[in-house]
Design a protein around this nucleic acid. Structure first.
Length: 494
RNA sequence: GGUCCCAUCGACUAGGGGUUAGGUCGUCACUCUUUCACAGUGAAAACACGGGUUCGAAUCCCGUUGGGACCGCCA
């Protein structure tokens, strides 16, 4: 597989408080691409919107990424020689370039208020026109501009988009894209608070940070022409672009919060393993191709096999069912000791005593096949923690009260009393003996026992449950449903 | 509405001129297990439509339809 040289990519989220699933995939693709090509993966924080600042968002972001095993070569934590990596700390840099653009006539000052612009857009909508800045400030006279600036009238700097030009670029995923420059807005580059907009900051930083490949979400395709205009005005080389298709809701709209969990943290919290999250997300919109039917990939495989060429050009619906399946597969095949460690919080949260790791391990071994996610553990804990069995419903109680059941249960009880310790093997033997001696079999044998011991007619394998519960508990549970025989070892009546 | 992008089973996808259109999730059935699940076997299930090009089109081209994204002093 071809390896590119000197690759530098960046993951450039704006810190909104949580990590979006779509963001994670972009981050993953950047990471795979960088690693695959022995390049550098850079984290840049796009915090130029003062109104959307969220405290702790960056820390959270870094924590989530690192808990998934995604490392950055440069960024707020690692610090490289292309910093600072917070855009809010690069204001003077942007200012320098925006001034430069103004001085060469590629950008201009504009003094409209947000209200005026709103008005303008409303009017355009009424007329059925495309909403777009009408470029009225392009024609401002130099002396008026100076006067306004001196008076301190709030202003923005806008990009002067060249007219009647076809802007085209080659996207590594989408192919050639052409856009008529006349429909491109004179984008604001510097806001009235002095902060740059995404478009300026992005272009400036990608250039200064020597980014070779821009891999980001498809929602950015339509703004690429604006960026190209800036690159050209500044005389900069345009990086390669790869616009990754969107991750979609069930109804095919852009994945959004109202239709389920979109925060990676939510999935982590619910006990989806990082391995399955990464595996699953990576396969959303990418596959190794060439007839390869493998579906399970460790992160190293993904790095080895990832190419932008095999990234899908259409969006992909996020399907929790398949994630559940995949996570369950990982849970089933995980090292039990490690799984036990990972499960601790979920046992604890369910109010289960976690001091006996051996016990937890046994329980996990018995129930892991049922778990789509670790938080499902709580659903299976009841049978292991209850002091008395609570029978699920009337129907089950009836089964327990039948004559044949009584016989089965009392015989089983007697067998178990004779055992020193109950384990899954001798439990099986005991049941076998009960079967032979009572003649009860099938539903008449296993059902009542299960119900008496667990309270439910289905659940994990009974021998395993029996071993976990132990002799005392089983006897205690059985006692309730049997006519007590005279204790065998009671002293003879005097 | 304008611009751009997209189009293979319900979902994720393979295939990219000649295939019985393959796999996975989900669904259903059967087998196994004297529970549920797991596992196994099998089934139903797709090339959006219309024109071209071609001996031959799911595949290439055009159009239609449908879907999506963007159209902010948000990113």
């Amino acid at each position: 597989m071809e390896i590119l040289k000197d690759v530098r990519v960046r993951f450039a989220p704006s810190p909104t408080g949580f990590v979006h699933i779509g963001s994670l995939r972009t981050a993953l693709f950047n990471y795979f691409f960088a690693k695959h090509n022995n390049g550098k993966n850079i984290l840049r924080i796009e915090d130029t919107d003062q109104t959307r600042k969220v405290d702790g968002a960056v820390e959270n972001l870094i924590r989530v990424m690192s808990s998934l095993g995604i490392e950055f070569d440069e960024g707020p934590v690692q610090a490289g020689d292309h910093g600072p990596y917070y855009q809010s700390e690069r204001l003077s840099i942007y200012r320098k370039y925006s001034d430069g653009l103004v001085s060469i006539g590629a950008a201009y000052y504009a003094f409209e208020t947000p209200e005026e612009l709103d008005e303008m857009r409303k009017l355009q909508q009424l007329e059925g026109k495309q909403t777009m800045y009408d470029r009225r400030a392009r024609d401002l006279r130099e002396e008026d501009i100076q006067k306004n600036l001196e008076k301190g009238i709030p202003h923005v700097i806008r990009l002067k988009v060249p007219l009647d030009e076809e802007i085209r670029f080659d996207d590594m995923i989408k192919g050639t894209i052409k856009i008529d420059s006349n429909i491109i807005d004179d984008q604001i580059l510097i806001k009235s608070d002095g902060f740059p907009t995404y478009h300026l900051a992005n272009v400036v930083d990608d250039h200064l940070m020597e980014i070779t490949h821009i891999i980001r979400g498809e929602e950015w395709v339509t703004s690429v022409p604006k960026h190209i205009i800036i690159y050209r005005a500044l005389g900069w080389k345009i990086p390669e672009m790869a616009h990754v298709p969107l991750i979609l809701n069930r109804d095919k709209s852009k994945l959004s919060k109202r239709q389920g969990d979109v925060a990676v943290e939510d999935y982590l919290k619910k006990g989806y393993l990082k391995e399955s999250i990464i595996n699953f997300i990576a396969l959303l919109g990418w596959n190794p191709g060439e007839g390869e039917e493998q579906e399970f990939f460790a992160i190293e495989d993904l790095i080895k096999k990832f190419t932008l060429k095999k990234v899908q050009s259409s969006g992909a619906v996020f399907n929790v069912d398949k994630l559940n399946w995949m996570n369950n597969e990982y849970i089933k095949n995980y090292d039990v000791d490690k799984l036990t460690e990972l499960s601790l919080p979920y046992f604890a949260e369910a109010g289960f005593d976690i001091s006996d790791r051996g016990l937890l391990k046994k329980i996990l071994t018995a129930i892991r096949v049922y778990l789509n996610k670790l938080s499902d553990i709580s659903e299976y804990l009841k049978i292991f923690s209850q002091e008395d069995v609570e029978i699920e419903n009337e129907k089950l109680i009836e089964i327990l009260n039948s004559d044949s059941t009584k016989k089965v249960l009392s015989l089983l009880s007697r067998k178990i009393k004779k055992l020193d310790v109950v384990n899954s093997d001798n439990y099986k033997t005991a049941i076998e003996e009960v079967k032979n001696e009572t003649g009860a079999k099938g539903k008449l044998l296993f059902k009542p026992v299960r119900i008496a011991i667990t309270g439910s007619e289905n659940g994990p394998e009974l021998p395993a449950v029996a071993e976990i519960l132990g002799k005392e508990k089983i006897l205690h549970f059985l006692k309730k449903w049997i006519v007590e025989d005279p204790p065998e070892d009671s002293p003879p009546a005097v």
